[in-house]
Write a protein that binds this DNA or RNA. Structure first.
Lengths: 357, 357
DNA sequence: GTTAGCACTCTCCCTCGTGGAGTGCTAATC
DNA sequence: GATTAGCACTCCACGAGGGAGAGTGCTAAC
């Protein structure tokens, strides 16, 4: 059977209607709504064909039809048009990014919130991935005798700190000296590389130095290993209950909320998604069994042309994909511009290599 | 009418039963459950009295009775016994605090999680309040030319950082010099005092120094002002749906979840609660209208005898107060011990003044 | 003061029946 | 040959009706 122009238009009308109303759509509705000028009987025949082809499903005989996952997939792959945002929405986004922002965690929280408010789905945001970030400076700051704080400054404006043990008699001056040596050793390396560099090749150095270096390496390494549980922020978890798919089936909502509560899950999704400019994962395409009747849409943002993190939206399969993608696209672009402006001012805006300063 | 011993025992049995079952309890149940050896008819008379006194309510004629808010208040004030925790629960708590912890945010997240898992309610945790915390050290770390990171180390193991503008030609050595001057100026002050100290009395100093100092003051001050939106962590929000009060009335669950999503709300609750060792806020005693059919129980934790933060549990009015309080008590004590051990090792364990080192 | 007994009330839940929305098929029409 | 009107059929949603059960309040007896 061929998916001709007419079938396509019908399928599209069905999806649009169902996405809006969440009720199975019947032939009469389509016959009236679409501009094809066909009777409901004709539509019925076409719908029957579309069902046979796997694009439509019937909850039960004598109900209307609903789009299958395959239909959404097809829709997203071939029929996507960019949605129109209202002036208010556009200005909300614009204003958000015009505000002062100087802390990764804060950007994450407010952006996730904005995203969830505008889309009416649950939003998530991942701060730049530690793995992908480059060390600018390491500084040891005294806390109590025998204990110092290693502060790692990275190029994405991300700051990590970890407490490390140091010899009791290690004064401020000595810490400063060590800081300089540390910085020299790891500058411009990625975090994993930096840890590596601090662990190996210390043969010719002093005992104290060796001890401190490896202590810093351990602390940063631990921090790196812990990344999965943080740096991911959720916004608008309540929005789940806005959609009948979840509010009519509490067990679904519950298991969804549980998934969202475990940051590691979100981290895995967003981290994987950072490899692509956009991702749309529909229903059973999701890895987590609890999410197989939900959809996830993500977009990546960049610093100096380098993709470092991503954000996204979680909702039911019946999602307003076009709209969500339009919004995420805009957000990703704005984020990239703003963050690049702050943390990599030399970047010329083109993708690719970062020009020398 | 007098609330004699017998009425008391009946009231208590009713509360215990209702807390357990969430269904109105009838006279027959009490007659069988309590060891008073009274017939249901007698109980009925007593219950009628208790209702008249405002301790019981009837959802409708011919239903059993449920405790009123007044009853819970009375129960908490006068009838509280400490609950017995199972060996598993005790060891879960013990293990949790035996683990390595060196980061305030991480402690917050895992503790909130533990608390919600054990109590089966939603838990919240506030990291030590910035207002109450004492500066140990300030360090400026170079980021890009013209931009540095001010890292503030406090006595509660809390680290705050904020980016500040510095003169473009300000090198690492100069920053180090400024750091020392900064630290000297604000050491052992509370954060608000430190900001104050950096703003005033700079008449005799160099232009550069003045600029940097006020820039740091601004940055830290901004951070302070932002406190409300962070340092509060939620755990087990899903648990809301475990209790029929919310899962049978989605709109209630929704409004509850919305409240929980706004950290400022939780901050306000916990911050206020830090003044008391425990708080139990029942139903309409809550300030937020959305929370007036929920209850909040909190406990404070201390560092070196000084209360610095608190944690708590949110659930329906029908809460297992005794159990929750027992758990929170234990958690608060453990937290105080652990945190004091880490950040104020000189403290002798008694409340009151911190002894000189 | 306590209790057995009884009439009464109210909710919960099950069943049943009806109306509406939608389908699939057939035969007529363009 | 494609389209459409017509019709029989299916299934869900919803409301009415009708116990069953749990609980109460009252009265009279112990």
């Amino acid at each position: 059977m061929k998916l001709d122009e007419r079938k396509l238009r019908i399928l599209r009308t069905i999806i649009d209607d169902y996405v809006l109303t969440a009720t199975p759509v019947g032939s009469r509705t389509i016959s009236k709504r679409s501009e094809l000028g066909l009777s409901s009987a004709t539509i019925r025949n076409e719908m029957s064909d579309l069902e046979e082809m796997g694009f439509l499903e019937q909850p039960h005989t004598s109900a209307g039809r609903i789009p299958s996952e395959k239909a959404y997939r097809f829709y997203v792959d071939t029929m996507l048009h960019s949605a129109n945002l209202t002036a208010e929405e556009l200005s909300a986004i614009k204003n958000h990014f015009a505000r002062r922002m100087d802390e990764a965690e804060e950007v994450a929280a407010t952006t996730a919130r904005l995203l969830s408010d505008i889309t009416e789905y649950t939003a998530m945001f991942m701060t730049p991935e530690l793995q992908k970030v480059i060390v600018r400076h390491i500084q040891l700051v005294p806390v109590v005798p025998g204990r110092a704080l290693a502060v790692v400054v990275t190029d994405a404006g991300l700051v990590r700190d970890a407490t490390v043990q140091v010899p009791k008699d290690c004064g401020a001056r000595e810490l400063e000296r060590l800081s300089n040596m540390l910085t020299e050793r790891v500058k411009d390396k990625s975090l994993p590389d930096a840890v590596e560099a601090l662990r190996g090749g210390l043969g010719d150095s002093l005992e104290v130095q060796r001890r401190v270096f490896s202590s810093v390496a351990d602390a940063v390494g631990r921090d790196l290993a812990r990344e999965e549980s943080r740096g991911v922020v959720l916004g608008g978890a309540t929005n789940i209950l806005r959609h009948p798919e979840y509010s009519d089936d509490l067990s679904k909502a519950k298991s969804m909320l549980s998934v969202l509560e475990t940051k590691e899950n979100l981290y895995r999704i967003l981290s994987k998604a950072t490899q692509m400019e956009f991702t749309v994962t529909i229903g059973s395409e999701n890895e987590l069994p609890e999410m197989q009747d939900s959809s996830v849409v993500t977009a990546t943002y960049k610093i100096g042309g380098r993709p470092v993190g991503s954000c996204g939206v979680i909702g039911s399969i019946r999602m307003v994909y076009a709209r969500v993608l339009t919004i995420l696209n805009l957000m990703g672009k704005s984020l990239s511009t703003v963050l690049t402006g702050i943390f990599d001012p030399g970047f010329d805006g083109k993708d690719g290599e970062n020009p020398p300063k």
